[in-house]
Nucleic acid binder design. Structure first.
Length: 735
DNA sequence: GGTAGATAGGAT
DNA sequence: TCCTATCTACCG
């Protein structure tokens, strides 16, 4: 009997299963479009990835597509190829990878083609106006009169003409006096893009950077390596302008848009072009709209965070990855742990589109790629506008009196800068009041019930008697008055940003302190208000965490103090030194932006530490050169490739045993080494016990080949439902 | 991950 | 005897 071939669609479905699912071919079910399909006993939305002339699946199991949801595909074949590549490379279920690329509403099957809503008066409405039934409802009467005069009016016009019309219109609609019409708006693609501003005169370095990035017929990847204030953004704008002028669109990626709205503002101010912003602060509807605008070519500039790397952009002509060293480009939670920076490079290569990675403190990976010729190195050595670079010095905390975390030389420097009318910025990577609550009598410290960690003391609503919080699982508890073990009084030990804020207010009375951390700036409004207080000059001293190292320009800050650089000097994570160097250089970059020279003081117990010495004597480039040599000697990335299999379970030993079994079933492969499994640095976190197994190879292809065979086998090992496991390819933290 | 049928144990 | 909690297999 000749086999009958049955043509099928191969569909990505959001499920942890690592495969596509075949369904009978249906009209309009072209690759890239969404379809509704029966799946098990449910009905789900999937994405057609490909069509095939035949299926491996027994014909009896094949089912039909229920509905095609998109008239035109959402993803191009190149978009599909990128997503498929990512699923392969990160060895993650393809359906979940596709889910990452799609806003929630589209995943749910909603139609988000932008609609134009317009309102008009009904006959009943005219009658109501005539017979005066609305005499007592003045606003309703006025709105109806407006519609009686104007006819159909669309919502944008109403927003502009009559702010606050919506609730009134809703009431009138319920009474059938007004009606609303929806119609699909056609998007004007290829809108003319105008440059609103000319932009400043470029420095020679900027000009040659722009030349390199806008050379005709150019593709390829570039590292734009420029100190803070050297004008990287201006280079981005010029390169983007050139791409837009060629009729192409631009993808701009940034680590956290909420913290760095400047980038978006600069693009908005420069170009009269439709911009779509994609970040975590959007509502589902707003995100779906922005995504759709980008995917249909309605936006010529797309500014977004990590997941924006997957957003379809027709006619893409340039990809910019700002602050490429930033760890938020790597998804570090959940299952699909991709690097948006690496995928951006791949996307550019795949489409022949130039990619610019920008940073004042490039990742060692990127600097290594420069050496290998995979990235061209474009340097912007000087600060634009000829500002003097900051003077950096160490304060030996052993050699000076230290009062409440602040050494005398730093205190004097703060006094001097404040007296000169400048602002001062202090960086401390530790939020809360104190990292520990200690009993001075018996040595008891407040522990987290569900983690191997100490609870951090926080001020409750600002006053002395605080609360306790776990920074690992989020647990909160009131602060006990007495030691639960011996009944003695308890003391907060150590310094967090809240305590430093308190200390500064005491040491420098009359100088308002502004605190920048996740606790003080929970809402975006709080951040903008705080920044406003700094810019207006009402705040004189800034104290904060990482938040202060990202993006914001504080032109009147002339002194930056790093209160404790030591935390990561002796970390076991091989990337700790790189992160510390980047943080110090980034926070130092906040000082002396204007014509006033800046000063940076770093407090340390170990001023002779080679990392700090190198950084001060030879700058970030010198540090990076040394660090790369160390990595090479120790055979760490980028000189080797890593993958980490992490597992956790509420019962001790379960995760470790699972990983031991995973190691046992591995087929030995040449050039691939397994290390571990070992318990995680913090074994118990949020009530689960963690362990990990490392896979290492000097060659990416070997590692990939090994994982391709191993991961499916590992999957079949995981029988218990309570056990969770993830594979992290190119992990950032290996603790 | 979601679902439902199978199974086992406890409460009534 | 029935109810529920847990296990197991499957998804085209």
């Amino acid at each position: 009997l000749p086999q009958v071939k049955i043509p099928v669609c191969q569909i990505a479905i959001e499920t942890p299963l690592r495969r596509l699912f075949d369904y009978h071919l249906a009209e309009g079910a072209v690759p890239g479009s969404r379809v509704r399909v029966p799946f098990g006993r449910q009905h789900v939305v999937g994405i057609v990835v490909a069509q095939a002339a035949d299926s491996e699946v027994p014909a009896a199991k094949l089912r039909g597509i229920e509905a095609v949801l998109d008239a035109a595909p959402l993803f191009s074949t190149a978009d599909l190829a990128l997503l498929t590549w990512a699923a392969d490379y990160y060895h993650h279920p393809v359906g979940e990878v596709f889910a990452t690329a799609l806003p929630r509403l589209l995943r749910l099957g909603r139609d988000v083609a932008p609609v134009q809503r317009s309102w008009h008066i009904t006959n009943a409405g005219r009658a109501a106006l005539a017979d005066g039934t609305l005499r007592r409802a003045r606003r309703q009467q006025q709105l109806l009169e407006y519609f009686a005069a104007k006819g159909a009016v669309d919502e944008q016009a109403l927003d502009a003409a009559l702010p606050g019309w919506r609730p009134v219109a809703r009431t009138l609609r319920e009474k059938s006096l007004l009606e609303m019409n929806e119609q699909t708006r056609s998007i004007a693609t290829r809108e003319a893009v105008q440059s609103l501003q000319q932009g400043p005169v470029l420095t020679a370095a900027q000009q040659s950077a722009v030349d390199a990035l806008t050379a005709p017929g150019l593709a390829g990847a570039h590292l734009l390596d420029g100190v803070t204030g050297s004008g990287k953004t201006e280079v981005y704008l010029r390169a983007a302008g050139a791409a837009l002028a060629r009729g192409r669109s631009v993808l701009v990626m940034c680590p956290e848009i909420g913290l760095t709205p400047q980038l978006l503002e600069r693009f908005e101010a420069r170009f009269d072009a439709p911009i779509a912003a994609l970040h975590s602060g959007l509502t589902d509807t707003a995100r779906a709209r922005a995504w759709h605008l980008a995917a249909t070519g309605g936006a010529r500039i797309v500014v977004g965070t990590r997941s924006a790397v997957f957003t379809p952009i027709p006619n893409l002509g340039l990809i910019i990855v700002d602050e490429e060293h930033d760890s938020s480009y790597k998804q570090q939670e959940g299952g699909f742990r991709y690097s948006a920076r690496d995928l951006a490079l791949l996307r550019g290569q795949q489409r022949g589109v130039p990619v610019v990675l920008g940073s004042a403190t490039p990742s060692l990976e990127s600097l290594h790629n420069v050496k290998l010729g995979r990235l061209t190195h474009i340097e912007l050595p000087e600060r634009a506008g000829s500002a003097t670079p900051p003077r950096i010095a160490l304060i030996d905390m052993r050699a000076h009196p230290v009062n409440r975390g602040i050494a005398t030389p730093l205190r004097h420097a703060i006094d001097a800068h404040l007296a000169a009318g400048s602002q001062v910025l202090l960086f401390l990577n530790r939020r809360g009041y104190a990292p520990t609550l200690l009993c001075q009598s018996c040595g008891w410290v407040a522990p987290c019930e569900s983690c191997d960690a100490r609870l951090t003391v926080h001020l409750a609503g600002g006053r002395a008697c605080g609360s306790l919080a776990c920074h690992h699982c989020g647990a909160e508890a009131p602060q006990p008055e007495r030691c639960p073990r011996c009944g003695y009084g308890l003391q907060p030990l150590g310094h967090g940003t809240e305590r430093v804020e308190e200390t500064l207010a005491e040491f420098f009375p009359g100088h308002a302190v502004e605190r920048f951390d996740r606790d003080s700036l929970r809402a975006p409004k709080q951040l903008t208000d705080a920044i406003e207080r700094v810019h207006s000059g009402s705040a004189r001293i800034l104290v904060g965490t990482q938040m202060l190292t990202k993006g914001h320009h504080f032109p009147d800050v002339t002194l930056v103090g790093v209160l404790n650089a030591d935390q990561s000097l002796f970390s076991t994570d091989f990337r700790a030194a790189e992160r510390l160097a980047q943080t110090i250089v980034q926070v130092a970059g906040r000082a002396g932006r204007a014509d006033r020279p800046g000063e940076v003081l770093i407090q340390s117990q170990y001023p002779d530490h080679p990392l700090l010495k190198t950084l001060l004597e030879r700058g970030y480039a010198g540090f990076a050169a040394d660090a790369l040599q160390e990595r090479q000697a120790a055979h760490w990335p980028p000189f080797s490739r890593l993958a980490l299999l992490r597992a956790s379970d509420p019962e001790p030993e379960v995760a470790l045993n699972f990983l031991k079994a995973a190691r046992k079933i591995a087929t030995p492969a040449a050039g691939v080494a397994l290390r571990g499994p070992v318990p995680a640095a913090m074994v118990r976190r949020a009530g689960r016990y963690y362990a990990q197994l490392m896979v290492e190879s000097s060659q990416r292809t070997r590692l990939q080949a090994f994982l391709a065979g191993w991961v499916p086998a590992v999957e079949s090992l995981a029988t218990s439902r309570s056990l969770r496991w993830v594979l992290d390819v190119d992990p950032l933290e290996v603790l």
